[in-house]
Simulated assay, not measured.
Amino acid sequence: MSQLNKLPGGLWPVMLTPFTPTNHVDTAGLEKLTRLYIDAGSSGLFANCLSSEMYQLTREERLEVCRTVVKAGAGAVPVIATGTFSRDVSDNIEFIHRLHDTGVDAVVLITSMLAEPDENEEVLMHRLEQILNGTGTIPLGVYECPVPYKRLLSPALMGWMAATGRFLYHKDTSCNSGTLDRKIRAVAGSNLGFFNADTATALDSLDSGADGLSPISANFYPELYSYLLREYRSGGRTDALNRLHAFLTMMDRTTHNFYPYAAKVFLQRRGLPIQTVTRIPAETPGNADQIRLHSLMDSFHALADQYSIPSVL
Rank of each mutant, 00 (worst) to 15 (best):
V79D: 04
V25W: 09
G10L: 11
A76Q: 15
V277P: 09
T20H: 11
V77N: 00
S234R: 10
M54F: 04
S295Q: 08
K6F: 01
L30Y: 03
G212M: 13
I291E: 06
H294Q: 03
Y143C: 08
D198W: 14
D91H: 11
N23A: 06
F195E: 01
R151A: 12
N257S: 10
N5H: 11
L206A: 12
M297K: 13
H294V: 06
E144P: 00
R269Q: 08
K171P: 04
M161T: 13
E121K: 01
L224P: 05
T254C: 02
L224M: 08
T34S: 15
E223S: 05
F85R: 10
K32R: 05
A246C: 06
L213F: 00
S226I: 03
A74M: 13
L313K: 10
M158P: 06
Y37H: 12
I309N: 04
D172L: 09
D39T: 08
L152R: 08
N5I: 08
L168F: 05
E129V: 10
S177K: 10
H301W: 12
L157D: 15
A302W: 02
K150F: 15
T111K: 01
I280D: 07
T34D: 06
L63P: 13
F266S: 00
R62N: 14
M251L: 15
A72S: 03
E64A: 15
L248W: 11
G271V: 09
M250F: 10
G178V: 13
Y149D: 06
A28Q: 12
E144Q: 06
Y55E: 01
E223H: 09
A263W: 05
D211E: 15
E64S: 15
S174P: 00
R237T: 12
S86I: 03
L157I: 13
